[in-house]
């Protein structure tokens, strides 16, 4: 058990170190921080002074360790574009993205899981065929186009929902939320819907595939042979076993949802991390780019680790293998 844990945590640390090294290389070799601070026409002496001040004259390994130390202390440097500390900017933008991602995932689960279960149980029903065809459209249509169409229908033609921004937010001191005002909720509907479409289709197809696999297994056939009612077989026996892999995949999807938010935020001018990242890429603002890279990597590594541990807790076979 402990060996397994240590191996996983070790692997996660190696991944983080690799990503941090990439971020460090970007941070150091793309764009010239001295030019960013002094401008193109600075004198050689002034450049030297700034280089010394930033520690740029020291050996590369020393600088990498200084960089690691800074990051561990939450210091990602100054944004070239905004002139503000990167950490400050990110903390300010984080709530908008988190609220968007969670709302999108909630919608996706509420629609995707029942649709998947239905289309697995009633395989031959015309409704299932429509659902399955719809899900293929759902994974074929780009997220940004869903957003454009939603704006066209609900903001332009029907005029019922706002097409950009986050509405009014309430400042809770450490968190700004749009959940507490009516304009904040109205502004959330379209972005959350457009981020959910792909996830609905994904989750539906996954649940359906897993459920079909489970229904074919022996113990479900036994349950049938025992004469248990269909409803009981499907919901007590089949769904329970379907949900274990589905939960892990949803956990992994949550990370990609935050990444996908980049696109949705750009369509709706949603003031979150994704929009910040895109603006930074367009302006080649490498400090924010490398900070975002490390942040997203950290998020994925933590989620992956949590999923591994969850598997370990759920699946006795893994424990038996690790014990040997």
């Amino acid at each position: 058990m402990i060996a397994f844990l240590l191996r996983r945590v070790g692997g996660a640390l190696i991944v983080m170190l690799a990503v941090t090294a990439i971020a460090f290389v970007m941070f150091n070799y793309l764009g010239d921080p001295v030019v960013a601070i002094l401008g193109q026409d600075a004198s050689e002496a002034a450049r030297r002074a700034v280089e010394q001040q930033l520690g740029l004259d020291r050996p590369i390994l020393v600088r990498f360790f200084v960089y690691l130390r800074d990051i561990a202390g939450g210091n990602f440097g100054l944004s070239y574009r905004l002139g503000q500390p990167v950490t400050e900017v990110i903390v300010e933008r984080l709530p908008a993205t988190v609220e968007l991602a969670f709302s999108g995932m909630a919608i996706a689960l509420l629609i995707g899981v029942p649709a998947g279960v239905f289309s697995a149980i009633r395989r031959r029903s015309p409704v299932s065929r429509v659902l399955l065809g719809g899900s293929l459209i759902g994974i074929s249509v780009p997220t940004f186009f869903v957003g454009v169409v939603l704006i066209w229908v609900f903001s332009v033609n029907l005029g019922v929902l706002p097409s950009f921004g986050r509405g009014q937010t309430v400042d809770l001191g450490w968190w700004t939320t749009g959940f507490l005002t009516s304009s904040g909720l109205a502004a959330l509907v379209l972005p959350a819907m457009s981020i959910a479409v792909f996830q609905i289709a994904m989750i539906m197809r996954l649940v359906r595939a897993e459920m079909l696999e489970v229904i074919r297994s022996d113990y479900i056939q036994f349950a049938r042979a025992r004469g248990l009612p269909e409803r009981r077989i499907y919901f007590r026996h089949a769904l329970k076993n379907t949900l274990i892999p589905v939960i892990t995949i949803i956990a992994l999807q949550l990370g990609s949802l935050i990444a996908f938010a980049v696109i949705t935020e750009s369509v709706f001018q949603w003031p979150g991390l994704g929009l910040l990242f895109l603006q930074s890429v367009a302006a080649a603002d490498v400090t924010i780019m490398s900070a975002y890279l490390i942040l997203i990597a950290g998020l994925f590594v933590v989620i992956n680790l949590a999923v591994d541990l969850l598997y370990f807790a759920i699946d006795p076979r893994l424990r038996a293998r690790a014990g040997r």
Partner: peptide
């Protein structure tokens, strides 16, 4: 594989 392809592509574009 821990990163979505779209993010990697955006990153390469930024570089």
């Amino acid at each position: 594989l821990t990163f979505p392809a779209i993010l990697i592509a955006v990153m390469i574009d930024g570089v």
